[in-house]
Design a binder for these strands. Structure first.
Length: 454
RNA sequence: GGCCCUAUCGUCUAACGGUUAGGACGGAGGCUUUUCAAGCCUUAAAUCGGGGUUCGAUUCCCCGUAGGGUCACCA
């Protein structure tokens, strides 16, 4: 593509504010964005709110906010409902020219009432258009009949408003889902009637649910809004979405938004529908969670911890434990919601609350005889007592390891870990010592010994 | 059903006439500081079927089949 052509790219984002923007539409918007940015073009955000009954301003602002959060941006914002006078001008012109006509009919929306709808006189021709992704597509439009283009002279129907607006705004590239392929011939008919130039069409393959049906609520989250709230990262979302229906042509799979802009091209777009693979999204999210800088992760985590823990963090001791616990949380987090889920399930309680009730039962699990476990805990207390007050996990391991090898790793490590965490499952004992610090570890071992004696 | 689109491992995909058909997710098996998670290693797994074209088809053409889309005064 030459520079002259590039400077003329204008695409549009046309979400309808009748709900939160669907994840499939987000992918379409993303591709429009990538294409426009790659070619230095303009992006027009057009809120398609002509359905007065279903459109809501709250959704419009939520969608604007969610899309911006994702990293997308646009150069202009329009609301379709505020362009009715423009649409009406086009409509009146068509009627005046005899290309469309008013027709008094029983309303299909409110049966019983009659309305004067506007119908386009169908010239009944064969329409062939070029799709950038699929090549030539041909339709016979005779079967469409005289299509309704407005419910009333001042109330255009979707197809008409879209064509009039695209033409009026100078949209050069229409990038949309393949469900619009069969809408294209009728829109071209309208386009030709109003004398608008034909834009370039690129119909993207749709995204299907694992059962190869439409991606709907019953398959889980469908809106960007939900993914955002659940704690999916925008980097993971854009990366994952970009790879459904598009491929860089290589084995690479990690891309930032700017990298996608650079690499994107229609040639890499798939023709066949893609299935939304949540496992892969989860994997991407985990990969990006791993990359979050610790200071940023701290804020994210603090925000999602339950009150019983956050209320402790003003104390120096607990703040320190939280700080040392952070890498463990980050390591166990795939989506941000995992943090609150795990914390609420008590997975991180060990860092802030001493095991209670005592750990006797668990400590006995490995070896039912307290006479065996007790001396081991005592020995362990001696070893740990010689450590600095806040040893690293490696230092703790180094100190304990020889004894553990000598007695049998599990024989020593299991009671130690349980004494410190009070749980059947937890991070390894050395990490626990690191997080708790020497003195707290000692206190917990002492408590476990006391519990075993009873 | 009519019209339209599509067809490589379970999934996302690479190979744009010549490869032992590659990668990733997921799966399976194994290893590791005998828990959990993570991590690491290994491994199974695909060209929808039938005809052509060609020295040679995953790749081009046709026909089946299957899946999807669409048939509104919703967008």
């Amino acid at each position: 593509m030459n520079a002259k052509h590039d400077s003329h790219v204008i695409v549009r984002f046309p979400p309808s504010p009748t709900g939160y923007v669907h994840i499939g539409n987000v992918r379409t918007l993303l591709f429009s964005y990538l294409f426009a940015k790659k070619h230095g073009g303009r992006i027009i955000f057009r809120s398609e709110d002509t359905d007065r009954a279903r459109s809501k301003r709250e959704y419009e602002s939520a969608n604007l906010d969610d899309l911006a959060w994702l990293g997308l941006s646009w150069d202009e914002f329009h609301r379709q409902s505020e362009r009715k006078d423009i649409h009406q001008t086009y409509l009146e012109k068509l009627v005046g020219e005899g290309k469309a006509y008013l027709s008094k009919e029983e309303s299909k929306l409110t049966p019983g009432e009659t309305a004067e709808v506007v119908r386009l006189k169908n010239p009944g021709k064969i329409i062939t258009f070029v799709d950038e992704i699929r090549g030539e597509i041909t339709f016979d439009t005779t079967e469409l009949g005289d299509i309704v283009i407005a419910r009333a002279i001042d109330d255009p129907v979707y197809h008409f408003a879209v064509v009039a607006d695209d033409s009026d705004m100078g949209v050069t590239h229409i990038i949309r889902g393949e469900e619009h392929i069969s809408n294209t011939p009728r829109q071209i008919l309208i386009q030709e009637a109003i004398g608008a130039p034909r834009p370039v069409y690129a119909h993207l393959p749709i995204i299907l649910a694992p059962d190869r049906k439409k991606l709907s609520k019953r398959h889980g989250a469908t809106s960007l809004h939900e993914y955002r709230e659940t704690g999916y990262l925008k980097e993971a979302l854009t990366n994952f979405l970009a790879l459904i229906g598009w491929s860089p042509g290589t084995d690479e799979e990690f891309f930032t938004l700017p990298e996608l802009v650079e690499r994107f091209d229609f040639g890499g777009i798939q023709k066949s529908a893609g299935v939304f693979n949540i496992d892969k999204l989860l994997w991407f999210n985990r990969e990006y969670v791993k990359k979050i800088p610790e200071t940023d992760f701290k804020a994210l985590a603090a925000h999602r911890l339950p009150e019983r823990i956050t209320s402790l963090l003003s104390e120096v001791e607990h703040a320190g434990r939280f700080e040392r616990l952070l890498p463990t949380i980050q390591d166990r987090t795939t989506i941000l919601a995992d943090i609150s889920r795990d914390a609420e399930a008590g997975e991180y309680d060990f860092a802030f609350f001493a095991p209670n009730p005592p750990t006797a039962t668990l400590a006995w699990k490995k070896d039912p005889s307290p006479t065996v476990v007790l001396p081991r805990l005592e020995k362990l207390a001696g070893i740990i007592g010689a450590l600095p007050s806040f040893p690293t996990a490696d230092e703790a391991k180094e100190a304990v390891w020889e004894y553990a090898e000598q007695e049998g790793r599990g024989e020593v490590l299991w009671p130690l870990r349980v004494a410190l965490s009070g749980r059947e499952k937890s991070p390894d004992p050395f990490t626990l010592i690191y997080i708790l610090g020497r003195d707290e570890a000692l206190r917990r071992i002492a408590a476990a010994r006391a519990a075993l004696v009873v």
